[in-house]
Nucleic acid binder design. Sequence first.
DNA 1: AACATGACAAGTT
DNA 2: AAACTTGCCATGT
Length: 109
Amino acid sequence: MKKSNFFEDVYDVVRLIPKGKVTSYGAIANYLGITKSARIVGWAMRSSHNDATIPAHRVVNRNGFLTGKHNFIGTRMDKLLIDEGIQVKNNKIINFREVFWSPINELEL
DNA sequence: AACATGACAAGTT
DNA sequence: AAACTTGCCATGT
C-alpha cells in the first residue's frame, strides 16, 4: 500500500531523533514545510504505533505534554522517556527546553 | 461519496 | 493574556 509522502517524511525525521531528545509535531511539520499540518504528524504517529522503528515517544506537542501517551500499547511513554534521561512529570516533560531537538536547527534542510 | 474527527499549531479577537 | 477560529491531510463511519 502506498503511503503519502508526508507519512514517509515524518517517519524519517522521527527516526532521526537522537536518543535522549524529543521534538514537537510542529517542528517536524515545519521542517517538512507543512507548519499548519502538524495534526497529520500526529496521525502519522498514531498509525505508526505498529512500527517499532519509530520512537514516537520522543514526539510530543509544543507544550511538552505527552498527549499521545494514551495511544501507547504495552510500554508507557513516560517510562521510555525517563529511561532515556528525560524528566517527565504528570505527563509533561520538565526539561523540555533542554531536551528539545528541532530538525530545522539540527538537521538543516 | 460525504461528513466528522484526530498524538497540533499559529493567527485573531 | 486568554479564548476562539482557521488551516491542514488522512482515516473511519
